[in-house]
């Protein structure tokens, strides 16, 4: 129960951060990505704030060695740069650049229940399931490596 309540609280805080930063607004995100237009550098400041605080928290977590409400710290372990990492980042970059929404802001925006956001999230889910089905099909041919994500 503590894990569930804590996770809810972390999600809430994450959502509040996205709202305050303005990153739930596709126009702000596209304004950052539009280097050749009226450039809005805000996203760089959001990333900087997020990375600095996360790095400090992670350093503390490593020092403690154990999380408070779970058995282990589940650090991602992969280090190899493989083709799916590169191809996945390319596909994600195209989708992000087309609409200006990535998964976090898309889900926060789901609260407004507007048609385009609902369509985006359903498509995102379909892409996830489609990728898994395709992968499950193709690994029956080759040996399976980990499908666990980095984040």
């Amino acid at each position: 129960m503590r894990l569930i309540l804590t996770s809810f609280g972390c999600g809430l805080l994450f959502g509040a951060g996205l709202l305050i930063s303005g990153m739930t607004e596709p126009a702000k995100v596209l304004g950052f990505l539009d280097l050749f237009g009226a450039w809005d550098a805000t996203l760089a400041f959001v990333m900087a704030g997020a990375v600095v605080v996360t790095a400090a928290g992670y350093a503390l977590a490593r020092q403690r060695g154990l999380p408070l409400f779970a058995a282990t710290l589940q650090w991602p372990t992969r280090r190899d740069i493989d083709a799916p990492l590169v191809a996945g980042a390319v596909l994600f970059g195209i989708g992000w650049g087309l609409i200006g929404l990535c998964p976090g802001p898309a889900l926060v925006n789901l609260a407004g229940f507007s048609e385009p956001v609902v369509v985006f999230v359903i498509a995102m889910g379909a892409g996830t399931i489609g990728h898994d089905l395709w992968r499950a099909h193709s690994v029956s041919v080759s040996a399976q490596t980990s499908v666990r994500s980095d984040g």
């Binding site: 994450f14 991602p76 992969r78 799916p84 990492l85 590169v86 191809a87 996945g88 980042a89 390319v90 596909l91 994600f92 970059g93 195209i94 989708g95 992000w96 087309l98 609409i99 929404l101 990535c102 998964p103 976090g104 898309a106 369509v119 985006f120 999230v121 359903i122 498509a123 995102m124 889910g125 379909a126 892409g127 996830t128 399931i129 489609g130 990728h131 898994d132 666990r148 994500s149 980095d150 984040g151």
Partner: peptide, 17 residues
Amino acid sequence: GGLLVGIGTCMGGGCTS
């Protein structure tokens, strides 16, 4: 866009967060 974000983040193991 949503489809590409879904496939890409899944294949690449993560997104902006």
